[in-house]
Computed example of a mutant assay.
Amino acid sequence: MKTYDGPVSDHFDGLHFFDPDGVPPKSLGEVFRWQFGGGRKRETWPDWVPSPHADTPPARVDGDKVRLSFVGHASWLIQTAGLNILVDPVWSMRVSPVGFAGPKRHNDPGIAFDKLPKIDVVLVSHGHYDHLDIATLSRLAKNFAPRVVTPLGNDLTMRGADPTIKVEAFDWHDRVELRGGLAVTLVPTRHWSARGMFDRNKALWASFVLETPAGKIYVVCDSGYGEGKHFRRVAQAHGPLRLAILPIGAYEPRWFMRDQHMNPEDAVKALLDCGAQAALGHHHGTFQLTDEAIDAPAKALVEALDAAKIPQERFVAMQPGQVVEI
């Protein structure tokens, strides 16, 4: 498999990307310890938990309004200034290298694929299967031929699987003009990337700061918290932020997950660090990637907000099909 080849930088050593303020991903030995070691407590999710919501979005949203529709897990439709943007689109039943095994959906996407408006831009944060779904990207390419913006190296994954995907790859801190006064900047995030056993960190990962007529939206698809440096730096470089989209799920056991996934307590800290006016919680309740119960993230978010004396309405855990307008 062809991998990224580019100049050495402060986060690329010539072969692997790395986070100067992060830690390497867990070793395969630690993966086996989590999966097969004694004392593991993996909560059982119900087979199917339908969302009470379903969305049929408009063809376009014009003016200075932003319409955000939660598709599920880390997938969003963001509509503003006449542009339709998908984030980490996954409509597949499984997030896995194979179709017969791996994490499976526990609810339908909040928007049926055939109800999508014409998609202009797709943002893909990194290469993990629950974020970069080739089957969905190929369907989007066939139906809409959108422009796909992604961090370095993920373009090779997409183009190698389907040359019709119109993908462009960018580095951290690159600002990409979209259309109609909209732009997106790729910003560092505390995570890692891989598609298989032998390509760890050979493609880059990122969060996004989307400039809209209603203010800047900070889209964090996957991240650990660490010491909060990444969130404070985004506040300094890109603030003020109108809205943050923050992950709140896939966090147990903490000894294994804390460096790559935030729990709700971490996500509340991230909100305070980045200074966004409000936040929407995602990355929970659709695919069971880790050990916590399906409803644990939403419950723990309420507790974390109460503990931090933050009003519940400032940070809401979303369900597929829910819509927020700003």
Score class of each variant (00 low, 15 high):
residue 154 N to D: 11
residue 151 P to F: 04
residue 64 D to I: 12
residue 116 L to I: 14
residue 141 A to W: 08
residue 117 P to Y: 09
residue 101 A to S: 14
residue 103 P to S: 11
residue 93 M to E: 08
residue 85 I to H: 00
residue 96 S to I: 15
residue 124 V to Y: 03
residue 109 P to N: 04
residue 139 R to I: 15
residue 48 W to G: 00
residue 94 R to C: 06
residue 73 H to G: 13
residue 36 F to A: 12
residue 149 V to G: 03
residue 118 K to A: 14
residue 133 D to V: 13
residue 79 Q to I: 15
residue 70 F to G: 03
residue 78 I to H: 09
residue 154 N to W: 08
residue 77 L to M: 01
residue 51 S to F: 05
residue 53 H to A: 05
residue 76 W to Y: 12
residue 87 V to H: 07
residue 128 H to N: 07
residue 32 F to E: 14
residue 116 L to W: 10
residue 137 L to P: 03
residue 40 R to N: 03
residue 72 G to V: 13
residue 37 G to C: 04
residue 140 L to A: 03
residue 155 D to S: 13
residue 52 P to L: 06
residue 56 T to F: 09
residue 100 F to H: 14
residue 104 K to V: 15
residue 158 M to S: 08
residue 36 F to W: 07
residue 156 L to T: 10
residue 52 P to Y: 04
residue 64 D to K: 01
residue 90 V to I: 14
residue 152 L to I: 11
residue 110 G to S: 12
residue 79 Q to N: 08
residue 119 I to G: 04
residue 80 T to K: 01
residue 82 G to V: 15
residue 145 A to V: 05
residue 85 I to D: 00
residue 106 H to F: 00
residue 67 R to C: 08
residue 104 K to I: 15
residue 157 T to H: 09
residue 103 P to R: 01
residue 75 S to L: 10
residue 96 S to C: 14
residue 121 V to H: 01
residue 157 T to R: 06
residue 120 D to K: 00
residue 91 W to C: 07
residue 45 W to F: 08
residue 80 T to W: 03
residue 105 R to P: 07
residue 79 Q to H: 08
residue 66 V to C: 07
residue 72 G to R: 06
residue 91 W to Y: 10
residue 115 K to C: 12
residue 124 V to N: 02
residue 90 V to M: 09
residue 111 I to P: 07
residue 95 V to G: 12
residue 81 A to G: 05
residue 137 L to C: 05
residue 112 A to V: 15
residue 156 L to S: 10
residue 149 V to N: 00
residue 89 P to Q: 03
residue 34 W to T: 10
residue 77 L to I: 03
residue 148 V to N: 02
residue 101 A to P: 03
residue 100 F to L: 15
residue 104 K to G: 15
residue 133 D to I: 10
residue 100 F to W: 14
residue 67 R to N: 04
residue 125 S to D: 08
residue 142 K to N: 09
residue 96 S to G: 14
residue 54 A to K: 03
residue 118 K to T: 13
residue 106 H to E: 00
residue 131 H to C: 11
residue 110 G to Q: 06
residue 106 H to T: 00
residue 82 G to C: 13
residue 84 N to G: 10
residue 138 S to D: 08
residue 126 H to M: 09
residue 36 F to R: 02
residue 46 P to F: 02
residue 71 V to N: 06
residue 78 I to C: 12
residue 100 F to R: 14
residue 46 P to V: 04
residue 117 P to N: 07
residue 103 P to W: 08
residue 92 S to E: 09
residue 108 D to S: 10
residue 45 W to C: 04
residue 49 V to F: 00
residue 91 W to R: 01
residue 144 F to R: 00
residue 137 L to F: 07
residue 80 T to R: 01
residue 44 T to V: 06
residue 111 I to A: 04
residue 37 G to T: 04
residue 131 H to N: 10
residue 101 A to H: 12
residue 81 A to N: 06
residue 134 I to M: 00
residue 143 N to E: 15
residue 114 D to L: 12
residue 58 P to N: 11
residue 92 S to V: 10
residue 71 V to D: 11
residue 42 R to D: 06
residue 148 V to R: 00
residue 37 G to P: 09
residue 113 F to L: 02
residue 39 G to C: 14
residue 117 P to R: 02
residue 59 A to P: 09
residue 40 R to L: 07
residue 123 L to Q: 06
residue 103 P to Q: 05
